[in-house]
Design a protein around this nucleic acid. Structure first.
Lengths: 335, 335
DNA sequence: CTGAAAGCGCTTACAG
DNA sequence: CTGAAAGCGCTTACAG
């Protein structure tokens, strides 16, 4: 059915030149006479020529695609946190010739990486159990990791300063007279959660407070309402909670409502990431903010630099964006 | 830096066979002796051979990629509606060798389609101003459209029966004694909105009610709070609202709260699509439901059929999924 | 069962 | 400025 695509050869014939000349004008290479070029271009337009990317890739040994690896499957994709980062990535990609290939299941990651269809990858908030770092490293693909990460890797990293974020949140509640402050964390397989935990423990130690940590198996509470409810019931002394995502905070608020716990009257809650929902709900969520879009932009930009400098040995980059606390309506001074 | 990739030739040499034989075992083609095959396979494993997809694509004239076109840029991507459909798509794709290329800006659509890097496309809820249907059609690419759509096209369509969805919602409110029922619609550039409007108008006419339509320029109210507020103030007689997305409903609820309008006491609200937020908020949102995941699955499956039957002339398919009304907490009987 | 060879559509030294 | 030719890594008739 599909009409045969027209190739460089068709153009060359019609223009009475060699395919070499046609190729040169396609790639804007020098060495073609003004007139010849004009003739070739007009024929290309006329015939609606589109270069065959596969052929080009085959000889140039690149693909023109950039891969984005998203962990956790769909639960995560539904998370605005990732979407906002992708928005930043996308904005930069749109100014280039690259295509974006977003991958959100393990199967997809494997297919994408095993078949070598990308020139470089952006890995969002990797998790131990999903991405084997050694394997990633063996790929020898230009890679930038987005999201907090264990320091001893050799990858470029662009992340939010989540450790400080947690500190700010705890300090904020402390200033508001809270003395029993819990961390509701995501899965410890996520490096992000490890960072949260580190940040939480260190500040809580400094302040001489007791530690309360509830680890969920995702960055939201879906299917774990029971667990949360028990936690709330078992620790009635807790008056403040730091959640490692806004979605977790949302879930906690709902459970609290069911238990007739007043927010923020009896329980102050702070989210993370300042995603759109945070001011769509009532009461509006206090949270920590970082420019996720900028994080995305920075990460691709870095990757693009790596891609255009494959010979040079670039030093590893570790770029950390500051977070700030945003006071809204789910936190209050403890009487 | 990157170590040279090993090719079919390397395998052939090491195995003392021709590249033809190697190629045959790679593609599981018959015509290779048991022993030879075993030898070749073990060498492939040993050397970690990965076929070069570009080379293969060049000769087979396909790409191994399926494109997904998402309209409206990021606002839309943040919408669970699309994400859930993508989840369905992804589930099926994971059982195949195809890669998914998701495109959510006009730039990306153009790049993807102009460079012919996909074998077929899934178009989600297209909009007039973003996707030129004629252009799409000229691509001669196997295409399936997801989401309600104008009937006179020649594409395969898989969609929810949104026209009935709106009807159910209006009827529901009518049964609850509401007589002034508004439609808060998405942009009319979206075919989906057109369907909503058609459905709304026809049932409202049947029931002999007055029409109230507020058209927003997205499927959420971001940046249009003012407009919504004015609408609410100008039409105090309205006691029921059908929103063409859950996100719109969410927004309306928030504006109503600011205006001290009690929900559902003074205003009943019904969303669309039963996205996860609908039961994450308080009061829980009454809405209409359709199995979006199944819609996604059906659409890819259809596309896959088209892809494996390019010779045959398949009849156009138009698959419509029923919607049902879900009563939760934002609707009530009018006294 | 196996291999030599042509060809997919491009790019790029090389020679003129 | 221009072209002939080799080559990128595969697949697939064709011949044996």
């Amino acid at each position: 059915m599909r009409n045969k695509r027209i190739s460089i050869k068709d153009i060359a014939e019609k223009a009475n030149v060699s395919i070499a000349s046609v190729s040169r004008v396609i790639s804007n290479k020098p060495g073609v006479g003004k007139d010849t070029e004009k003739r070739i271009r007009s024929i290309m337009d006329e015939l609606g020529y589109k270069p065959n990317i596969n052929a080009r890739s085959l000889v140039k040994k690149n693909t023109g695609n950039i891969g984005v690896i998203i962990p956790g499957g769909f639960t995560t994709l539904q998370n605005s946190f990732f979407l906002t980062i992708i928005e930043g990535i996308s904005k930069i990609i749109d100014t280039t010739e690259y295509n974006l290939i977003i991958s959100f299941t393990s199967k997809q990651h494997e297919k994408m990486l095993d078949t070598n269809i990308v020139d470089g990858i952006l890995v969002l908030a990797p998790r131990e159990n999903e991405i084997n770092l050694q394997w990633l490293s063996d790929l020898k693909l230009p890679t930038v990791i987005i999201g907090s990460f264990i320091d001893d890797s050799n990858f470029d990293i662009v992340s939010a300063d989540e450790k400080s974020g947690v500190r700010f949140s705890v300090e904020e509640l402390y200033k508001k007279n809270h003395r029993h402050i819990a961390l509701i964390n995501g899965p410890s397989t996520s490096y992000q959660s490890k960072i949260y935990e580190q940040g939480y423990k260190s500040i809580v130690n400094e302040l001489g407070l007791e530690k309360y940590i509830l680890e969920l198996d995702e960055f939201d509470i879906k299917g774990q309402e029971q667990l949360v409810e028990e936690f709330l019931n078992d620790h009635k002394e807790i008056t403040g909670m730091i959640c490692s995502s806004d979605n977790i905070a949302l879930g906690i608020i709902n459970v609290a409502k069911e238990l007739n716990i007043d927010i923020p009257g009896q329980l102050s809650i702070i989210g993370s990431d300042d995603t759109p929902v945070s001011h769509l709900i009532t009461p509006k969520l206090s949270t920590t903010h970082v420019d996720l879009k900028e994080i995305g932009e920075t990460a691709v930009t870095r990757l693009l630099i790596r891609l255009s400098n494959e010979k040079e040995e670039l030093r590893r980059m570790n770029c950390i964006f500051p977070m700030k606390y945003i006071e809204r309506e789910t936190t209050t001074f403890l009487k």
